[in-house]
């Protein structure tokens, strides 16, 4: 887990990246790096859930296929928690099947990106979600 210091921790929004692939975390982190919000990283579902409960991030970027709690389980957990109603979720997945996309959207995800994705596209979606 890496926490990038920001000028005012209390006010800034938090974004959590949950992916078991270090190269993927690096790509996502590099893409959405911003002074406007703090970026957290988690390497598996369980670590991600701990961080979500602790920091209540405004946005969670979830890899669907992860060790521990997978992305869809985390999504359900977030949506079931009343304290996390404001949390936006974007799913990142290597699975291309329609059923997976549908499952993600029905589960209440804001958006769904299939690997390989365009980093710029991702950035747009993140900014939309954070309504910057």
């Amino acid at each position: 887990m890496t926490i990038k210091p920001t000028p005012s921790l209390a006010r800034v929004k938090t974004v959590l990246i949950a992916d078991d692939e270090p190269s993927m975390r690096l790509l996502v982190h590099a893409t959405i790096e911003s002074d406007e919000y703090m970026v957290l990283e988690a390497a598996d579902g369980d670590e991600a859930w701990t961080l979500i409960q602790k920091f209540r991030p405004a946005l969670v970027l979830l890899d669907v296929q992860m060790p521990g709690m997978d992305g869809l389980s985390l999504l359900r957990a977030v949506k079931a928690d009343p304290d996390l109603q404001q949390t936006h979720v974007i799913l990142l997945t290597a699975k291309a099947q329609e059923t997976d996309v549908e499952a993600g959207l029905i589960g209440g995800a804001d958006f769904y990106l299939t690997k390989p994705f365009s980093p710029l596209d991702l950035l747009t979606r993140v900014e939309e979600a954070l309504q910057l």
Partner: peptide
């Protein structure tokens, strides 16, 4: 596809 897409995503993304 999953195994290939992940490294591919890194290559293409970066």
């Amino acid at each position: 596809s999953h195994e290939l897409r992940t490294p591919l995503a890194s290559v293409v993304g970066f």
